[in-house]
Computed example of a mutant assay.
Amino acid sequence: MDNASEETYDAVVVGGGAAGLSGALTLVRARRSVLVVDSGSPRNAPAAQMHGYLGHDGESPAELLAKGRAEVSGYGGVIRRGTAIAADRLPEGDFRVRCDDGSTVRARRLLVATGLVDELPDVPGLAERWGRDVLHCPYCHGWEVGRQRIAVLADGPLALHQAQLWHQWTGRTVLLAHGWTPGDEDRELLAALGIEVVDGKVSGLTVEDDRLTGVTLADGAAVACAALVVAPRFTARAGVLTSLGLPSVAVERDGRVLGTCVASDPETGATALPGVWLAGNVTAPMEKVVGAAAQGVRAAAALNADLVEEQARRALDHHRAAGTDGTPGPVPGR
């Protein structure tokens, strides 16, 4: 797209998941011109259902997003399929967003909700079952696989917490000491809870009739389970943000690096760069769908308030420059 004729929006929302679409809906209802640039690759695409979202429990993620796109479009928002790869801060304060097809678009403000990528443990067959019976969040999937035998792939100390947590849903939990071996005290705790510990590297998964039935160990032993719990590394999709000088930072828990995110104000989503807000997993890796949607609403409200304040300042400057004849003229910035 020729920059001389590029479109300009009050806000460009980068990312069309629950966070981005919720933010876009808030902005278009505030009568803002809004473009959503959506790569079409939401994090939860492998999951058939989502849970814990009041009024939408059991709905497919794809159905939720289809409804969201229709709602945003119904208020005049524009949804464009594509991948934003970078953005530039222009001298006058606006932003130019560059997409992978070579097109550009101009925005007065940015709301980035690009999410994250789950980097899974390197076990053959695991990625193909991700979001189905290879899982990580009990609040998302625990009810569906509960009361069955669940194995936790231990590749770090966090597995101890995972085993205890998932035990709430099943009572039939086994910890696979794949890359982390619990010490004596941890083993005593697990034994007290009735959680079995199996030593040995996991070498693969066993599947029958498209259902997980267990895992195999490097020594050939088999361990039966109906679901396998893993701890992925959460890596923020931060390309647009790093191009603006907003770096990814490590996310740590109990001394273990869980992944990366880009920092923002936890209440408003505001970043260190004026004019840029964040929502969803790109800034809050542990957030679920309903929380990401709420973040999108809060960030959009803060973004709109910032535009309102800018418009008021411009109106005042214009009014003062017009003198005292009582005819300030049209309000700039609309």
Rank of each mutant, 00 (worst) to 15 (best):
A159T: 02
A86E: 04
R256Y: 15
D155L: 14
A293P: 10
L175K: 06
G245P: 11
L303A: 01
R129P: 02
G74W: 07
H178V: 08
L120Q: 09
G40R: 12
F234I: 11
L25R: 04
D219T: 05
A279Q: 07
G74K: 10
C140K: 07
Q148T: 13
V36Q: 08
E287M: 14
L190A: 00
G15Y: 02
G52R: 00
L307A: 10
L110R: 09
G125A: 12
A163N: 08
D186N: 07
L244W: 03
A86R: 08
R237Q: 10
D10I: 09
G77V: 08
P266N: 03
R334F: 12
H56V: 04
G326C: 10
G280R: 02
A62Q: 03
T181C: 06
V223Q: 02
R129H: 12
E7K: 13
E208N: 13
H167Y: 04
R129N: 06
N44E: 00
L212M: 01
R314I: 11
N3W: 14
P91L: 09
D219I: 01
L190S: 05
G280W: 01
G275V: 07
E119W: 15
L153M: 05
A66C: 08
R29N: 08
D133W: 08
A322P: 10
G183Q: 03
A315I: 11
R108W: 10
S243I: 07
R69W: 02
T271R: 04
T268C: 09
A279S: 11
R96S: 13
F234C: 02
L189P: 01
T181P: 08
G131A: 03
M1V: 15
D100F: 15
D265N: 08
W166A: 06
I150C: 01
T206D: 14
G77D: 01
A4G: 14
A45C: 15
V152L: 03
T271I: 01
V198K: 09
A294I: 07
A322T: 06
L176D: 00
R298G: 03
E63K: 13
G125T: 09
D219N: 04
G204W: 05
A192K: 07
A224G: 08
T173F: 01
A236N: 04
D2H: 14
M286H: 12
G275C: 04
S73E: 15
R129S: 01
P157V: 12
A62K: 05
S33L: 10
I79F: 11
G58V: 04
T327L: 14
D2E: 15
P46L: 04
E6T: 13
P61Y: 07
Y9H: 14
L21N: 09
D10H: 03
S39R: 13
A231F: 07
G291C: 11
V197L: 06
A84P: 08
A191G: 12
T283C: 15
D94N: 15
S264R: 07
H318G: 13
G275Q: 04
G15I: 08
D199H: 01
V36T: 05
D325T: 09
G323E: 05
Q295G: 15
G259I: 10
L190P: 02
L54I: 13
A312H: 09
H141N: 10
